[in-house]
Amino acid sequence: MGRSAGAHVAGCTAPRARRLGVLALALGGTTLVGAGALSSWDVTADASSGDLTAANAGVTLLDANGGRFTTGVADLLPGDWFDRYVDVRNDGSGAGTFTGAVTATGDLAGQLSVDVRTCSAPWTTVLGVSTCLGTETPLASGSLSGAQVAVAHGEIRTGSTAAQHVRYRFTFSPSAPASVQGKAGSVAITVSNTLVGNRDRTGG
C-alpha cells in the first residue's frame, strides 16, 4: 500500500515534475540564449569600393593680351585685319581633347578669312606687332565664306597654367566688292570638350 501509495504518489507527481523540468529547461535555455551563452558561427566579409566620382567637364574662353574678343570692329576696309586673343582653359576634372570652330555671319561672312594659331607662351604685342615668345603652332586657317573653319585644339590639361593661348587673325578680303560697303556681320568662335565614357575603368 505504502509502496502502492508511493507509487501512486509517484505516478501523480512524475508528469508534473517533468513539466516543471521542461519549463525550467526552457527558461534556462531562454536565459542562456538571451545572455549569449550559446555560440553561433556567422561569418561575414564586407568590402567597399574606393570613392567614385563622376567626371567634371568645363571650358572657359578667357580674353588675353589686353584685348576683348567681343570688341567690335567698325568701318573695315578691304585688306584690314584684326587679332583676337583667347586662352582656352580646361575647367574639367581631367585632361581632354578640345575642338572648336570659327564662323562668320551676316553680309560680311563671305569676305572674311581666319588664321588660328597657338603659342606655348602667352601672346604679346611688341611695338604693335603680335608676337609669340614661345613656340608658335598653326591650328587652322581658311575662308569663312559659307562654312565654318574647324579648329583642332588638341589636348588641354586642366587649370589656368595649362590654358592654350590662341590667336585668331581675321582678314577682310582685299578684294571685297563695293556692294558690301556699310554692311554688317560678326565672327564667333566656339570651343568644346566632348566627354564620352564607355570605357573600362577597372584599373581606376
Binding site: A55, A57, G58, V59, T60, L61, F69, T70, T71, G72, V73, A74, D75, L76, L77, R84, V86, D91, G92, G106, D107, L108, Q111, L112, F172, A176, V180, Q181, G182, K183, A184, G185, S186, V187, A188, I189, T190, V191, S192, N193, T194, L195, V196, G197, N198
Partner: peptide
Amino acid sequence: AAHWQPTATVTAPLTAA
C-alpha cells in the same frame, strides 16, 4: 552613351566701311 560637351562661344560684331 551620353555626351558631356561643355561649349564656350564668343562673338564680335563687324561692319564694313
